Amino acid sequence: MKTAMISAACMALGLGAATAAGAQDGDVGAALYADYCAACHGANALGDGDMANVMTIPSPNLTLLAQANDGEFPMLKVIHIIDGRTGIRAHGGPMPVFGRVFASSEPGPANPYGSVLEVRGRTLSLALYLESLQK
């Protein structure tokens, strides 16, 4: 079931099976989490990051996402939150839209799809890492 959900998420993101293996590299997701998420959500994703005490909306414990969803990790919902499609609010304003942050700084005629694939790959890597942290 888990593999089918990951495959469905990859297809929903427009990624083929060839790129799914690269996106599953836990080191990529862990590094992205450390760089972009840990300050608010904490090093262990418990919602206790250094910035959590200055936020007007509590930072959620990301290890309980599956538990709050009848034991199933809500992969597509998590992807949408990360890339900014949901408008989830934090700090009294929108959560950072990582879809924009993860975009390549060099899109253009020589790289027409690189930025889109880079965003989707990073987003999926981060979502897979969060899935691996579930209790």
Rank of each mutant, 00 (worst) to 15 (best):
M1G: 02
K2A: 02
K2Q: 03
K2Y: 04
T3A: 02
A4Q: 10
M5H: 03
M5S: 11
I6F: 00
S7F: 01
A8R: 07
A9G: 07
C10E: 05
A12T: 14
A12C: 11
A12Q: 11
G14A: 13
G14V: 00
L15P: 09
L15D: 05
G16D: 15
G16P: 13
A20D: 09
A21L: 03
A21G: 04
G22C: 12
Q24S: 12
D25A: 05
G29Y: 12
Y33V: 11
Y36D: 01
A38W: 01
A39L: 06
C40K: 01
C40Q: 09
H41D: 01
G42R: 14
G42Q: 06
A43L: 04
N44K: 14
N44W: 00
N44E: 14
N44A: 05
N44I: 01
A45E: 05
L46A: 13
D48P: 00
G49F: 09
D50T: 03
A52P: 02
V54N: 02
M55L: 15
M55S: 14
I57Y: 09
P60F: 07
P60H: 06
T63L: 15
L65Y: 10
L65H: 15
A66S: 06
A66G: 05
A66L: 12
Q67I: 04
A68P: 04
D70G: 13
D70H: 12
E72I: 06
E72L: 14
E72M: 06
F73W: 10
M75R: 07
K77L: 08
K77H: 00
I79D: 06
H80F: 07
I81A: 11
I81E: 12
I82E: 07
R85F: 01
T86I: 06
R89V: 03
H91R: 14
G92W: 01
P94M: 00
P94H: 10
M95W: 11
M95P: 02
M95R: 15
M95T: 15
V97A: 10
V97E: 09
F98G: 02
F98W: 07
G99F: 01
R100N: 06
V101R: 09
V101K: 08
V101M: 14
F102Q: 10
A103Q: 00
A103I: 08
A103S: 09
S104Q: 12
S104I: 03
S105H: 13
S105D: 04
E106T: 14
E106Y: 06
E106F: 06
E106S: 11
E106H: 08
G108E: 03
G108Y: 05
P109V: 07
A110W: 05
N111W: 05
P112G: 15
P112T: 05
G114L: 04
S115T: 01
S115Q: 00
S115N: 03
V116Q: 15
L117H: 12
L117I: 03
E118I: 15
V119L: 13
G121S: 14
R122L: 01
T123G: 11
L126G: 09
Y129Q: 12
Y129I: 01
S132Q: 02
L133T: 03
K135D: 12
K135T: 00
K135A: 11
